[in-house]
Amino acid sequence: MTAYKLRIAHLYGDLMNTYGDYGNVIALTYYAKQIGVTVDYHLVSLHDTFKADDYDFVLFGGGQDYEESVTAKDLPGKSAEIKAYIEQGGSLLAVCGGFQLLGRTMEFADGKVINGIGVMSHHTVNLNSPELKDGMRGKRLIGNIEIKNNENGETYHGFENHQGRTFLGEGEKALGHVISGNGNNGDDQTEGVIYRQVYGTYFHGPILTRNGNLAKRILKNALSKRYPEIDWQGKLAAIPTESF
């Protein structure tokens, strides 16, 4: 029997790790183990090299403003390979700050604007931005949130906690539409993003621990790319899905 492997890169996992983001690795490992897949976890941090072909799944989490600004300075050295990884259909989950940094620009609470790597077309403003509707400014978006993806019919539950407001750009779809809570910007009812095999979100919780349906979807994508001959969908359907 072949030993199947899922090679995970946790981008800046020692800096961008707020609010249980690592739990997404725990969840994927939990499901992978039940279908006979071993997880190889790699931390890819400051000054480390990231190579697109070395990984089957990438997690890019959120951080405090300070860590996020340090991460942003290091990112240009890795952005070409991250771009290659995404464009060749690599699976990636980006949460909060990681989601923001994959886009064009992001703005800190103090008004400082920095460039993301721009591999995706969304951009993020801060909570005081004139881009926001009256009444939506000045407050952090915190609380429980539920969204629905109208294409696949799945609903996802989580907890959002962000000051940044993200607006999706060309070629991007939302991860879901807001049923309750705020979502990307509290205005257009979108939450998160889907672009190729990239899933971005403001959900903590963490998203894959509470939404086994999404964890399985991502796992299936990642494994099918590496081992296309195997029926991963069937294997995953045979094990229980944690969802609450």
């Binding site: 020692d14 800096l15 790790n17 690592y22 931390l43 300070y66 860590e67 340090v70």
Partner: peptide, 18 residues
Amino acid sequence: HRAPTNTDGILAPTDDQV
């Protein structure tokens, strides 16, 4: 050694060293 991945506050004040 390095701190476990999921540890807070592990940046030096030089801003670019873990």
